[in-house]
């Protein structure tokens, strides 16, 4: 009798236990699968692949072609005769293409010095959290530039190599949150030919770019390129630009004020003559329009 009673009790207990287990399982079924940790890569640290003149931490997405129209009016201090610079224009037309998610190439043609440029940009480290944790993004950019102006002195012996210059940059930065991104950009610009021996062929600089998002579709951007002393001729200023990015679906409009006339690295950063304190400021804009060339596999 007693054993039977005990078994019955056990049976009831077992039933209860099963019931409890069943209930628990219903509480959170997905936890049965265990948490699968994923890596969350930082994206949209900038609205586009340029801060203003500076390359930004962002790469053009894989399989995407980005058509750039960069435009600088003249300088504000040209006065009313040139309608504060609006009568003049300097343009760079460019194409950027994402070969892979980390490798991007591009070409451009500027009216300034009739310069043709080409570059490759490779993301070595990509900021991420989760399974793979990486606090920063590190990208390397190398560019080559050809000045195609007619020779200033056609009678002397001119070499093609004199037209060339190069740039090497590291973009080190972090998207701190949805609102703030900061990047540092150590820069080396090599000019094959400089006008005087007082100027260095190799110019070292340290750039900084920041963006502050103000609404979902608008950010404020600023960039500054500090050149180490005694490398460039007198009258060359450090490049400083400030502006806003406005994103509207497929386009990004960048409106800005900058003292740089050129839009390729050697012209933007080592040949800036505008003085902010003297009104040597260009109003300008960059328009970015993307086209999907290779559709991603789903």
């Amino acid at each position: 009798m007693n054993t039977r009673f005990a078994i019955r009790k056990g049976f009831v207990a077992l039933l209860l236990l099963c019931g409890i287990l069943g209930l628990q399982a219903q509480e959170d079924l997905l936890s049965l699968l265990g948490e699968e940790e994923t890596t969350d890569y930082a994206s949209a640290s900038f609205k586009t692949n340029r801060v203003i003149n500076l390359h930004s931490l962002e790469n053009t997405h894989s399989g995407v072609l980005d058509f750039k129209i960069n435009h600088r009016f003249g300088m504000l201090n040209q006065g009313v005769y040139d309608l504060f610079g609006l009568d003049n224009a300097t343009i760079r037309l460019g194409l950027d293409y994402g070969i892979t998610k980390d490798l991007q190439i591009g070409v451009g043609r500027s009216t300034y010095q009739k310069m043709i440029d080409g570059y490759a940009k490779y993301r070595i480290l990509h900021q991420s959290s989760g399974k793979r944790n990486m606090p920063i993004t590190l990208t390397a950019v190398a560019g080559m530039y050809i000045n195609t102006l007619k020779w200033s002195d056609p009678d002397r012996e001119n070499y093609f190599s004199s037209r060339l210059s190069y740039s090497f940059q590291a973009l080190i930065g972090r998207k701190f949150n949805d609102w703030i991104t900061v990047q540092l950009t150590p820069t080396l610009i090599h000019r094959n030919l400089v006008a005087t021996t007082a100027e260095a062929n190799d110019v070292y600089g340290l750039g900084i770019g920041v963006r502050q998002r103000i609404t979902r579709r608008v950010t404020l951007n600023a960039e500054y390129m500090y050149l180490l002393p005694d490398q460039v001729r007198d009258g060359i200023m450090n490049s400083f630009s400030i502006g806003a990015d406005i994103e509207t679906g497929g386009h990004v409009f960048q409106l800005h004020l900058t003292n740089s006339t050129g839009m390729a690295e050697p012209t933007a950063f080592t040949e800036t003559t505008g003085d902010w304190l003297d009104g040597g400021i260009h109003f300008g804009f960059n328009i970015s329009r993307v086209f999907t060339i290779v559709k991603p596999k789903i």
């Binding site: 894989s62 995407v64 999907t292 991603p296």
Partner: peptide, 10 residues
């Protein structure tokens, strides 16, 4: 995954 990467970002 979207066809347009920018759309995906937005």
């Amino acid at each position: 995954i979207f066809e347009k990467a920018l759309m995906q970002e937005h």
